[in-house]
């Protein structure tokens, strides 16, 4: 297991759920990847949480598309939006990857498999009772991943992104 920790050559894994928090994490990861000359892998776990049935179906008007196809399209849109926020970053360098399963476990499993240097992910930043009730993916990944995990809370950054969108 020690081999997994701090693989100096490994890629930076960015698990995303297409939210503004994920966008903040991706932008942060792209920036440090450039400094560290590392590859970025943007991972999306295709999974519909029990509390949000129809999450993917709502995003597509075409009924015959599978969740994977819809997720791929959402990823394109997501990266497009990130590009609009930070036009000076070359997002084409980021590789995208889709897996199915339960997000937190799959993220850790995949990070180990590719021997990632670190994991960078956004957090919705719930506090108090809400943080107990809503199981945080970031917290679980931090608990189980052997490599360093950077959690981008970036509330201000997200608000900035939201404001930009509103304009």
């Amino acid at each position: 297991m020690t081999a997994c920790v701090l693989n100096p050559e490994g890629p930076i894994l960015v698990p995303v759920d297409f939210s503004k928090h994920s966008e903040a994490a991706l932008i942060f990861a792209m920036n440090i990847a450039e400094l560290m000359e590392r590859q970025v892998i943007v991972l999306h776990i295709v999974h519909e949480p029990a509390s949000a049935p129809g999450y993917y179906r709502r995003e597509s008007s075409d009924d015959s598309r599978t969740f994977d196809a819809i997720a791929a399209e959402m990823m394109e849109k997501f990266i497009e939006e990130a590009k609009e926020t930070c036009p000076n970053i070359d997002f084409t360098k980021a590789e995208t990857k889709f897996l199915d399963g339960i997000p937190s476990r799959r993220i850790v499993e995949y990070a180990k498999k590719i021997d990632a240097h670190m994991v960078v992910m956004g957090s919705h930043g719930h506090r108090g009772l809400k943080s107990v009730l809503i199981a945080s993916k970031a917290r679980k990944v931090m608990q189980y991943a052997p490599m360093p995990v950077t959690v981008v809370k970036a509330d201000e950054m997200v608000q900035k992104l939201m404001k930009k969108e509103a304009k």
Binding site: V46, H47, E48, P49, A50, S51, A52, P53, G54, Y55, Y56, R57, T66, F67, D68, D100
Partner: peptide, 12 residues
């Protein structure tokens, strides 16, 4: 199994 629906959608 062909990933056109999810467990969450199916229970109801």
């Amino acid at each position: 199994s062909t990933r056109l629906m999810s467990l969450a959608q199916s229970i109801g």
